[in-house]
């Protein structure tokens, strides 16, 4: 039983290690409450990226899109980014952002904590950049 628990723990830690590594590389938060606090102070949208460790499209989205020079520059200047694992981070962020499919990106108004725009599936940097514009336009309209 102890071995089983140790194995489960090691497996879970192994899963979180990769997402933590990516979050640190691109400077994304892993804490919803902290991201919300900063977003309120700076009056910016929270960009919540929901991924799954089992999902190859998520890996590609992280590597090719979120880690691209263009998107990194835009996200760090215009949004408060947060990345969560759809399964292992359950309970650490609001239930309404439990994504049906991954990757899904929720753009959340920090005042209402409601999503103003959602972006689903893998996208190339240029397409995702258009979604960033759409999210910002919706946020501006809602202000």
């Amino acid at each position: 039983m102890k071995i089983l628990i140790s194995l489960i723990l090691m497996f879970t830690l192994g899963l979180s290690a990769q997402i933590d590594e990516f979050a640190s590389e691109v400077n994304y938060s892993r804490d919803y409450a902290q991201a919300l606090q900063i977003a309120k102070e700076q009056n910016k949208l929270i960009m919540l990226v929901a991924v799954g460790d089992y999902c190859p499209w998520c890996k590609k989205f992280e590597r090719k899109t979120l880690n691209s020079k263009e998107i990194r520059a835009r996200v760090s200047g215009e949004f408060i980014p947060l990345i969560i694992d759809r399964v292992s981070d359950k309970g650490k962020y609001p239930q309404e952002f439990y994504a049906q499919v991954v990757p899904t990106v929720f753009f959340i108004n920090p005042k209402t904590q409601k999503s103003v725009f959602e972006s689903m599936g893998y996208m190339k940097p240029s397409d995702f950049s258009s979604d960033l514009d759409s999210a910002k336009a919706k946020f501006k309209k809602a202000k």
Partner: peptide, 16 residues
């Protein structure tokens, strides 16, 4: 539209 845009791509990375 989403399905067709996904199927024209692959989750493998073929850079370089």
């Amino acid at each position: 539209f989403l399905a067709s845009s996904l199927f024209s791509d692959t989750f493998y990375t073929l850079d370089n």
